[in-house]
Amino acid sequence: MSRSEATRLAAGVTGGVLFAALAVASSAAASPVSIELNRLEPRDSACRVSLVVANPGEKAIDSLKLDLVFFDKEGVISRRLAVEAGPLRASKTAVKLFDAAEVACEGLSRVLLNDVTACGGEQDCLALVTTTSRVKGVEFGK
Rank of each mutant, 00 (worst) to 15 (best):
Ala94Glu: 15
Ala6Ser: 12
Gly137Asn: 07
Val24His: 00
Leu51Lys: 10
Ile77Gly: 05
Phe70Val: 08
Leu126Tyr: 08
Cys47Leu: 03
Ala20Ser: 07
Ala21Phe: 00
Val95Glu: 13
Leu126Pro: 00
Phe19Lys: 02
Phe71Ile: 06
Ile35Met: 14
Gly12Leu: 08
Leu18Val: 12
Cys119Ile: 04
Lys65Arg: 13
Cys47Arg: 11
Leu64His: 01
Thr131Asn: 06
Ile35Phe: 05
Ala11Met: 06
Gly120His: 02
Val53Trp: 03
Gly86Cys: 08
Val116His: 08
Thr7Trp: 04
Ala127Ile: 03
Val76Asn: 13
Ser133Pro: 05
Lys142Thr: 05
Leu128Val: 08
Phe98Gly: 04
Phe98Leu: 01
Lys142Phe: 11
Val103His: 13
Ser2Cys: 05
Glu84Met: 10
Cys125Lys: 01
Glu5Leu: 13
Val69Leu: 08
Val24Thr: 01
Asn38Lys: 14
Cys47Lys: 06
Gly121Gln: 05
Ala60Met: 06
Val49Cys: 01
Leu51His: 04
Arg39Lys: 15
Ala28His: 05
Leu22Phe: 12
Asp67Thr: 07
Ala54Phe: 00
Asp99Trp: 09
Ala6Lys: 15
Asp72Pro: 04
Glu36Arg: 14
Leu113Ala: 09
Lys59Phe: 03
Val103Phe: 11
Ala94Asp: 15
Arg79Phe: 10
Ala29Gly: 04
Ala46Lys: 10
Pro87Lys: 07
Leu51Glu: 06
Ala118Arg: 14
Leu113Gly: 12
Leu88Met: 12
Leu113Trp: 09
Val69Pro: 06
Leu22Asn: 04
Ala54Lys: 12
Arg43Asn: 10
Ala90Arg: 13
Pro32Thr: 08
Ser63Asn: 02
Pro42Gly: 07
Val17Asp: 03
Leu68Gln: 04
Glu41Ser: 15
Ala11Lys: 06
Pro32Glu: 14
Asn114Pro: 05
Arg48Pro: 04
Leu68Pro: 00
Leu18Gln: 00
Ser4His: 11
Glu74Tyr: 10
Leu126His: 09
Val13Met: 03
Val138Gln: 09
Ser31Asp: 13
Thr117Trp: 09
Arg43Cys: 01
Arg43Trp: 10
Asn38Leu: 07
Val13Phe: 01
Ser27Arg: 14
Asp44His: 12
Ala54Arg: 15
Val129Ala: 05
Ala23Cys: 02
Ile35Leu: 13
Pro87Val: 10
Gly120Lys: 08
Asp115Val: 10
Val76Glu: 12
Val83Ser: 09
Leu22Trp: 04
Val129Cys: 05
Thr131Pro: 05
Gly120Ala: 10
Ser45Phe: 11
Lys136Asp: 15
Val52Ser: 11
Glu74Thr: 15
Gln123Arg: 04
Ala25Trp: 09
